[in-house]
């Protein structure tokens, strides 16, 4: 790892010290990105632990007759974290449902899912295929009965929904990225300085999102 990467991650962790901040960032990026992003297992399990801990503390509070006000404030803190976590997990399930066939075909995409999500994607795909097979495909003539292809003459899977990576996203830079090339040819270059806000093609900044150098908003 080169030195600027160290500096960057140090700056990033200083800017977002709590797991809630990190989870919020993951949630926002996941919401704004057209494709499924990498699942941060460590972060999610930390958040789960903290939620569980606070739930236990809250039980103790009510047993020990702690002030209602304090209890209700902690309850709000708990509810907010729970909302974030649930929304994040649901969001990912929605994406998996939408692109199950596409995800199942790619090792790279599958590796972004948690183990539970992988199981979900697999069974989701099996159930859907079985359903389509029984209700529609078995009644169609030979050559038109594939789940993934329109007909035998299709040279590739042309009925698999894929996320549109060409789409435009709003993003905000955390620190200076410098001159950044938007296309393969090098004709489109933007200078990304700290705290800039841009609308860019997701495909071109994908790497920056994955490296945590830019936030989708």
């Amino acid at each position: 790892m080169s030195s600027w990467e160290d500096e960057d991650s140090a700056a990033a962790s200083a800017a977002a010290t709590t797991d809630v901040e990190l989870l919020k960032r993951a949630w926002r990026n996941e919401k704004a990105a057209p494709e499924i992003l990498h699942f941060d297992s460590a972060l999610v399990s930390r958040a789960r632990e903290q939620i569980q801990l606070l739930e236990e503390t809250l039980d103790d509070f009510t047993d020990n007759g702690v002030d209602d006000l304090v209890v209700s404030l902690y309850q709000m803190d708990l509810d907010r974290t729970l909302f974030l976590l649930r929304s994040y997990l649901r969001l990912r399930l929605q994406k998996i449902e939408k692109y199950m066939a596409h995800i199942a075909n790619s090792e790279d995409l599958l590796s972004r899912l948690s183990q539970q999500e992988q199981r979900f994607a697999k069974s989701c795909k099996e159930i859907m295929e079985k359903h389509l097979e029984q209700s529609v495909l078995s009644k169609l003539p030979y050559g038109y009965d594939s789940v993934t292809r329109q007909s035998l003459s299709s040279t590739e899977d042309d009925m698999v929904p894929e996320p549109q990576l060409d789409t435009f996203v709003f993003c905000k830079t955390k620190s200076d990225v410098g001159a950044f090339q938007l296309d393969d040819v090098g004709e489109e270059v933007v200078d990304l300085v700290a705290d800039d806000l841009y609308v860019l093609r997701y495909k071109s900044i994908k790497g920056l999102v994955e490296a945590g150098r830019i936030d989708l908003i």
Binding site: F170, L182, D183, E188, V190, D195, D196, L197, Y198, V199, L200, R201, I217
Partner: peptide
């Protein structure tokens, strides 16, 4: 290829998105 909207706020982003 790129639209620069420095200092645009969160709600404004959401409305124009």
């Amino acid at each position: 290829h790129a639209v620069k909207l420095k200092n645009l706020s969160a709600m404004e982003v959401n409305i124009v998105r």
